[in-house]
Write a protein that binds this DNA or RNA. Sequence first.
DNA 1: TTGACATGTTATAATTTTATAACATTATAG
DNA 2: CTATAATGTTATAAAATTATAACATGTCAA
Lengths: 120, 120
Amino acid sequence: MSNEDRYDALFKALGHRVRRRILDIIKDQPKTTGALCAVMTDIDRCTVMQHLSVLEKAGLVVVERRGRERWNHLDALPIYDVQKRWIGPYAAHAISMLGELEALAAPDASAQAPVAVKNA
Amino acid sequence: MSNEDRYDALFKALGHRVRRRILDIIKDQPKTTGALCAVMTDIDRCTVMQHLSVLEKAGLVVVERRGRERWNHLDALPIYDVQKRWIGPYAAHAISMLGELEALAAPDASAQAPVAVKNA
DNA sequence: TTGACATGTTATAATTTTATAACATTATAG
DNA sequence: CTATAATGTTATAAAATTATAACATGTCAA
């Protein structure tokens, strides 16, 4: 699987609020599928399972099978990775653009601290 | 528009390799739609425009109209914002999990520097 | 003014995603 | 062993996305 494939899967997985909600729920401790559905009463169990499989394909959820239970664990490493390799550079680009705007707005204030970064 | 709406739009926009490619192309200097299509010969002009509108809705592309030309600028600020508020915390979570694994692997090495954070 | 260039709009087909329903499988408690 | 709890599978419908085609509009240059 190429990096592009991985980014497609990851961003697509993050691109639905129900899936982000699932990640939030299992962030601090894993949950069985049943426990997850018990919390998300507004969403059908099958739908939850489909979302879980999308998250699993993106590598964000790791499944541990215990008897008849399925424990869904968060694995945030793909998020860390995409931050490092993709998001981070773009965020840095945004900051440097802000810096250029600053420079344009106050061309002779070179001693001043970069306001945009300060607000980060 | 809520934050969830914004994240939906942003992650969805990033979830297609053609759109990420467009962002890469206009990252360092804006391009007209025509110039963009001239570079992406493998993709139909209409398709490129549809992708541009998805990027525009996500706030990643800002359009400057000059005569009959449409100049597409990158605005990476939404990426910076989502990194700060969403991606960053999850990436940090990943790192802290790595830290816990480290601790498990070497329980008595408490004086050692946290390797995972060092590599961040 | 007019022809051609750059872009925009509308329509449509194919594909993918999302949500549910109905039924199937597996494992545990009693 | 067997009823039931937990999960899985298959099927299907509705909605959204992606890719193209055909046609429309606006603008510049001669």
